[in-house]
Nucleic acid binder design. Structure first.
Lengths: 145, 145
DNA sequence: AACCATAACTGTAATTATTACAATGTCGAT
DNA sequence: ATCGACATTGTAATAATTACAGTTATGGTT
């Protein structure tokens, strides 16, 4: 994503595009790796030596408040962030730790919510073993048999 | 739930039914309130003065490891627990804080997961305003107009 | 260009949830 | 009754997050 596009998106959400905010937003969009605060901080620090972890927290909270990012919570000790705020599911591989996006049916869960309830946010996720890691397991099983 | 039933369920999952474990399990089943560790600890302490919060943590981790409870994570600062381990969704009201269960279509999300991925766990949740709280909002709007 | 108000950034300290660990207590088998 | 294994407990350590106060950057006005 170009700097111009990033600035554009932040501005249309009412966010003043500071240097740090642009960098953090570009990181999220380009990497698509559902990083934690700590990962963002560690990865951006070398090129942005004055960056403070508090700024990363503040920025993500701001982004989230205007729906520029969504939070991804799969395991209870790590909050991840995703700049793709469309409705989609997340799959985390218990072996390699990779988080994958997957499509979900629009309004998949609507049908179960009682009348009179209004929804502001919906999240779908699962855990398991990705193709690569499941593959390895199978290979090992075969090798050991 | 009777004590006998609780003991039964713990034993069939290979858990030795100690006094504390039974109490914690009964609490979860009877209240159905998706409590946090802290809530369980506070609520059981009066009738079980020697209870330690560490025991609550240990017990829930044990329960979770054999699928006697599932974790419910909606907001990043609280992990809740549910003794109903069937697949269902959770709705948290942003106004009153209440967590409601709701049904979801069996295999609702299967269709989006690529071939070769194996799923061990799936979770669906959303946030919004429950019937009661949405009602209040409407009432207030009407009153002020 | 200098000034000023506002907002953003930073670093440290405080808070909170969770885990580690060592000591104590409990319970069933011998 | 004794023993060993396991459960419970309390405290200390860890880790994630937030609060806060000082500093820096920014944009508008003269």
């Amino acid at each position: 994503m170009s700097r111009q596009e990033a600035v554009q998106i932040l501005q249309t959400h009412g966010i003043k595009p500071s240097y740090q905010r642009i960098k953090i937003y570009e990181y999220l969009v380009d990497k698509k790796n559902h990083p934690t605060v700590d990962t963002i901080y560690r990865e951006l620090s070398p090129g942005l030596p004055t960056l403070s972890k508090t700024t990363v927290y503040n920025t993500l909270k701001l982004f989230h408040s205007v729906n520029v990012v969504q939070k991804v919570m799969i395991e209870d000790n790590e909050v991840r962030f995703d700049a793709d705020t469309s409705i989609h599911g997340h799959f985390k591989c218990l072996s390699c730790g990779e988080v994958y996006d997957f499509p979900v049916q629009k309004n998949a869960l609507m049908y179960g919510i009682p009348e009179g309830f209004s929804i502001t946010d919906e999240h779908i996720y699962c855990t398991g073993y990705c193709q690569d890691c499941a593959q390895v397991d199978t290979t090992l099983l075969q090798a050991s048999s």
